[in-house]
């Protein structure tokens, strides 16, 4: 349904107390109209006999940035890895509950984790470019997934992806150089370009800026800000300030529980749970 049609349909007609209809932006109407990207119900993750996540119920919006925060060991990275089945790669790890992506259970037997990971890309704490050229780093995914058959198409994907990652101008004359020759911040953006190249719907980021200096961090955050219009981004960060700057929704995890999940503004101005308040203000709980 088109945004205007949604607004005109009367399904979403926010009004002022005086009864005047508030005009929604097209984007907002879309955001309200579409189903969440992920619906998680009673999600539990076990490492052997230990339950690391105790039944998480949470929806992740279709676009925008959701930040997962909490002290070390709270389960936020475990939860992040649920979305692209990265926990499958950990021996003894077991996931129960429903994780629906666009209504489809991603833990269903018919789902191929490799294809899932093309739809749900991931960026790690330390940039991990392949030991290949800048070009081949970005071209790798489209090649193995057969997204481009002609050289020109592949060139275009590489250029567009590097442009979206805000790296094109810095590397366009040195595409044959090894990816590892770039600076830390550039490598992190290269990895994002690599993730974008296979046209994912979701980008998961696990502490993506913790190894970057403030300028590289700012460039990365600017990139996240641009990408959030088109992608669903879920980011784990230990930096409260970063969560506050880049996300629209923030979830606070503590000892394997989802304690509080709300608009980022609410979490940082007026959190409802004492444990959230203690954590984000740096108090002993």
């Amino acid at each position: 349904m088109e945004a205007n049609a949604i607004q005109d349909s009367g399904l979403f007609r926010p009004v002022t107390p005086g009864g005047e209809v508030i005009k929604m932006s097209e984007k907002r109407a879309h955001a309200l109209a579409v189903e969440p990207k992920f619906k998680c119900r009673d999600v539990r993750v076990f490492y052997g006999a230990t339950e690391a996540l105790h039944g998480i119920d949470m929806d992740i919006e279709n676009t925008g940035v959701t930040a997962l925060i909490g002290p070390s060991g709270c389960g936020k990275s475990t939860f992040l890895r649920v979305f692209n089945r990265m926990n499958d790669t950990i021996p003894n790890a077991r996931v129960t509950g429903d994780i629906l992506m666009d209504g489809e259970n991603i833990y269903d037997k018919k789902i191929d984790p490799v294809l899932l990971r093309a739809r749900v890309g991931m960026v790690f704490q330390k940039p991990n470019p392949f030991p290949k050229s800048i070009y081949d780093n970005v071209a790798y995914g489209p090649r193995i997934h057969g997204l481009a058959t002609k050289k020109n198409d592949l060139n275009e994907i590489v250029e567009t992806s590097l442009q979206k990652a805000g790296l094109w101008n810095e590397v366009k004359d040195r595409l044959k150089d090894p990816g590892t020759s770039l600076s830390g911040g550039q490598q992190q953006r290269l990895v994002i370009a690599r993730a974008i190249a296979v046209s994912p719907e979701v980008i998961l980021m696990d502490e993506p800026a913790s190894a970057l200096d403030p300028i590289a961090t700012a460039k990365l955050e600017e990139l996240i800000d641009e990408l959030k219009e088109k992608f669903c981004i879920v980011i784990v960060t230990h930096s409260m300030a970063q969560a506050a700057r880049v996300s629209q929704k923030t979830a606070f995890f503590h000892l394997g529980d989802l304690v509080e999940y709300d608009d980022t503004e609410v979490i940082f101005k007026n959190p409802k749970d004492q444990r959230t308040q203690d954590y984000i203000t740096g108090r002993t709980g």
């Binding site: 409260m240 300030a241 940082f268 101005k269 007026n270 959190p271 308040q277 984000i280 203000t281």
Partner: peptide
């Protein structure tokens, strides 16, 4: 200090 929540208020 970049205060948040009750500290910010």
């Amino acid at each position: 200090r970049q205060p948040v929540a009750v500290d910010l208020r």
